[in-house]
Nucleic acid binder design. Structure first.
Lengths: 295, 295
DNA sequence: CCGCGAATGCATACTTTCATGCACGATTGT
DNA sequence: ACAATCGTGCATGAAAGTATGCATTCGCGG
């Protein structure tokens, strides 16, 4: 019943790497007619080959399953699984081939890991639909409570500072306990529909309590955190994932802070164009310019 | 740069597609603690996930194999194989889509520009000598005033939060004017030798005034900013450069926040090993653990 | 025509993988 | 404090996947 129909495939570049490996394996071996048919079959669909069982191949080629085992044996492997693992290894080697040649010092290694986090964040936003939805929802919530405790407090304040240009009533909450609960309740009473929370490791229990409280107060919760599954994500309506590397003494917050800016950016675009224009105007006003030094 | 030409990047996209599918599957399902651990494990290595058996996962995560079966069942599948086939299907679906190159959307372009900033930062730290010097100087200044106004205030607070573990008396100053001047003077009187300032665009005049005041009070000034020459840099003794992209409505602070973490990291290493050990101990103390959620 | 060896399939044993009943312990709500 | 529910691991059995002994067939050279 296990037809190749349910087998998956991998991208073309990976597939060609598998095919190359397969050719290399076969090279210099005398194969019987049946075995050549197997080889030919696999070379024709390298993308699926890595997932096929011996039975799948036998059935597809029209030979017996033991012939497949003997095929692997003839190629110098102790059995079919070992052969298949070699094909799979061709995939995995290709992925690690991105290893950087230059030696990095400790600080550079740290930055490098953050670079990879940003790459993950970027690739994860290939479809920005969810981000835009969340942004629109947050922009429409008046007021908008924003929660960030401990390490996440600066992030919440950064968001608050930026979002103030796209939202008239952002309320940053950086203290836990009853103070937070009071402010959440008051925000809900004032008409808030959503709350935004930043929950980076290590995840404070108090934040979870806060999320629970927020939802009990009738708020929906958008959560920025580094894993979409976890004790915090359980209590959020929407999760925005921003990877954090924990391999160093201190996590930096590159991805979350970028996500934060992206979120505000999206909120801005969710605004009526009239309001956008007024922001632009404010930015360039004489009053503003006097505040700042020339670039 | 919009479409990664090498095979490794394509493979990475495959992996991210598996991860995306996995997230979609998980979405909206209540998972038990063990099941969350499974989900996280798979999300962390999507490229391997499609090959793993239930037993592999159980062993790696440290749970029983039946829990893996139940995980698949909890996600709405009739069994583990069906679940795994769905992950593999994510690869197969992607094969055709991968043919046309993916153009980066606006959000991705923004992240991409931050990526380049981080690359600049990394390459600029090939010789970490200056960073270490600054870190040592800051670590030795008791107390240590840290200045960050407006957008830079969150950065200053982030630094303050992190540095508190490597320094007994960090004083974050986020308000300008006489309040700042008072606090700087008091810090100098208390024995401070250095001040750290974050000055990102747009550069507030008040920050320059603060730097001037600090130096008049006898402090040396380390400045984190995005250009080593400019109106601010003139009033600093040491400048640490952290590139910022200004092409979007809002600057994100990826590079500065990474530099911030790197700086604290370096301060930590400038510490006697005895103190480092005590930090480690504190981090792992029972009291600390109760504050946070597992994982 | 006979004999020989290689190739292959069949039947079957073995291994790995997966599913399920049951008991124990933890957590929750009353 | 007690009961109920949930989550988990262990033991076990079923199923899928793989390996191997044996018999048959085929081709080829005596």
């Amino acid at each position: 019943m296990s037809q190749p129909a349910n087998a998956a495939a991998v991208a073309a570049e990976d597939a060609s790497r598998v095919a190359a490996r397969l050719r290399k394996i076969i090279e210099g071996h005398r194969l019987s007619p049946s075995q050549r048919r197997i080889a030919r079959y696999l070379l024709e669909r390298p993308a699926e080959a890595v997932f096929l069982t011996g039975n799948d191949i036998a059935e597809a080629v029209g030979i017996s399953q033991p012939s497949v085992t003997r095929f692997a044996f003839a190629l110098g492997f102790t059995g079919f699984p070992e052969f298949r693992d070699h094909l799979r290894a061709a995939l995995r080697d290709g992925q690690d081939a991105a290893a950087e040649p230059t030696e990095l010092n400790a600080v550079q290694a740290m930055i490098d890991s953050e670079l990879r986090n940003l790459e993950l964040l970027r690739d994860g936003l290939a479809d920005p639909g969810r981000l835009l939805e969340v942004a629109a929802a947050l922009a429409a919530s008046r007021p908008l409570p924003v929660i960030g405790l401990r390490v996440s407090a600066p992030l919440a304040h950064l968001f608050g500072y930026l979002a103030a240009k796209a939202h008239p009533d952002v309320r940053v909450i950086d203290a836990p306990g009853s103070a937070m609960e009071d402010r959440l309740s008051r925000a809900a009473d004032a008409g808030a529909a959503w709350a935004l929370a930043f929950g980076l490791p290590r995840y404070p229990r108090e934040l979870r309590d806060g999320l629970v409280w927020a939802r009990r107060a009738g708020l929906r919760v958008a959560l920025v955190t580094d894993h979409s599954v976890g004790a915090l994500a359980e209590h959020a309506d929407v999760v925005l994932e921003a990877p954090v590397s924990s391999q160093f003494a201190f996590d930096s917050q590159a991805a979350p802070s970028v996500l934060c800016a992206a979120l505000v950016h999206a909120m801005l675009e969710a605004l009526p164009t009239r309001e956008q224009a007024s922001i632009e105007e404010f930015e360039n006003s004489a009053a503003e310019r006097r505040l700042f030094l020339p670039d």
